[in-house]
Structure formats: structure tokens, C-alpha cells
């Protein structure tokens, strides 16, 4: 999966695909955009890109805005911070697991939790007394919540709109409404056509704006302004 910019939900660092950006004809401008956004904040370089109709920078800049929305939601909301807390609990214990104990470490740790898989990959019965097992048990009680939240059941195509999808929806709305409210030009509509297209259940729709049918049901008289194409 090709990505140019992406937040790491466990550390809140923004990861940039610097190799791809370097190979882009506007690579230097994109790196300069990042610098400006870090010094002045995201709004001023975004508005500058918009005022010159620079679709390359607008595209990168609104993706950056999308990730900043994730940054804020992950940090502020209890669900977001639950993910961070879960990871840091593991980080704190990791040095003991790796450097202090001599235990065998199954990769992934989950494979050591199940007795059958454990036997299949050659871990002995004594594994249940290990640091790795204790750490695995705690971690999986935490991670299970996140995984169950985002469970997709292909048997009946049911999607539970869990935490991760809600995070995506909030970031999508922020990105889209910036485009709609500040950059609504024919060129922007063409360049960001997935954002301005009517909802039709595409992969993009289900990933980012799955909430639109619910929006119609809550406001049947006057549809949400944000979904007008």
C-alpha cells in the first residue's frame, strides 16, 4: 500500500515517505511546505497553496491536515489515548522481556497464547510461566478491545463502525470541509473528485464517509451540506 504521509497511532509521530517525495518533481517544495507548517502552523502554507492554485501542495497539505486531525483525536479522546496507553505499557515492559529475561519470544506474541499454536511452533509447556506469556496476556486483553471494535465480518458484510473508522470519518470531514469551504474551484473539484463525488458505496466511501447514510436518516428534510456535490 503506497502512502506518502501517515500518523503512527502508537507514538503520534507523523511518518513521511521521504524517498517518494524526493523523487517527485516538486519534492523540494513539499519538504519546504513541511518546514513552513512546522514553524507557522498548517493554515498559512495551506492558504498560500490555495491562493496560487497549487494542486500538488494543496493535495499534500490537506493530507497533512487529515493526519493532524488524527493527532488531535488520538491524543485528546479516551479511545485514542487508550491506544497510546496500551502501547506505552508494553514499551515499559519490553526491555525486561528482551534484555533481562532469557525467555523465548514468539513472534507474534499471540502465537504463544494458544496452546496448540504454541506446540506447533516448538515452544515448551513452561512458556506459561514466562515473562513473555504474562506480558502477552496483558497486552492481548488491551488490544482485543481495539480489534473487536474494528471487526469486519465478511460472512454477512457487516461493518461495525468502530474507533478506527470513526477516526477516519473525523479526519475526512476536516479535510473535505477545508476544501469545500476554502478551495471550492472547478480545478479543486476535478483534482479531489473522490471528495466531491456523490456517495455511492465505493471503497473510498466505505473507508472515509460511511456515516453519510446515517446523516440522511437523522436529517431527512434537508441533507447535510457537506455531501452536496
Amino acid at each position: 500500500m503506497f502512502r506518502v504521509i501517515q500518523i503512527d497511532p502508537e507514538t503520534l509521530a507523523i511518518q513521511l515517505n521521504a524517498g517518494a517525495i524526493s523523487a517527485h518533481s516538486r519534492g523540494v517544495d513539499i519538504f519546504n511546505f513541511v518546514d513552513k507548517a512546522r514553524v507557522d502552523g498548517i493554515l498559512s502554507p495551506l492558504l498560500a497553496a490555495n491562493s496560487t492554485g497549487d494542486m500538488d501542495l494543496l493535495s499534500f497539505g490537506t493530507s497533512y491536515l487529515h493526519e493532524l486531525r488524527h493527532f488531535a483525536d488520538l491524543l485528546l479522546t479516551p479511545f485514542g489515548f487508550y491506544r497510546i496507553r496500551t502501547a506505552f505499557e508494553f514499551f515499559k515492559n519490553l526491555p525486561y522481556l528482551v534484555f533481562v529475561s532469557d525467555d523465548k519470544i514468539p513472534v507474534p506474541l499471540m502465537s504463544g497464547m494458544d496452546p496448540i499454536t504454541r506446540a506447533a511452533i516448538g515452544l515448551g509447556a513452561g512458556f506459561e510461566k514466562s515473562v513473555a506469556y504474562r506480558l502477552g496476556s496483558t497486552s492481548f486483553s488491551r488490544v482485543r478491545v481495539i480489534n473487536a471494535e474494528n471487526h469486519y465480518d465478511p460472512a454477512n458484510s457487516s461493518i461495525r463502525y468502530g474507533g478506527d473508522r470513526i477516526l477516519e470519518a473525523l479526519a475526512y470531514i476536516t479535510q473535505f470541509e477545508f476544501l469545500f469551504q476554502k478551495c471550492d474551484t472547478p480545478e479543486a473539484r476535478h483534482h479531489f473528485s473522490s471528495f466531491f463525488h456523490l456517495f455511492e458505496g465505493s471503497e473510498f466511501d466505505l473507508a472515509y464517509r460511511w456515516f453519510i447514510p446515517d446523516c440522511h436518516k437523522m436529517h431527512p428534510v434537508k441533507p447535510c451540506q457537506t455531501i452536496r456535490s
Partner: peptide, 8 residues
């Protein structure tokens, strides 16, 4: 957003 400064 203009006040947020994540690490890169």
C-alpha cells in the same frame, strides 16, 4: 491545527 506540532 495551526497550534499542533507532532514529531516527524
Amino acid at each position: 491545527a495551526p497550534n499542533l506540532r507532532p514529531s516527524f
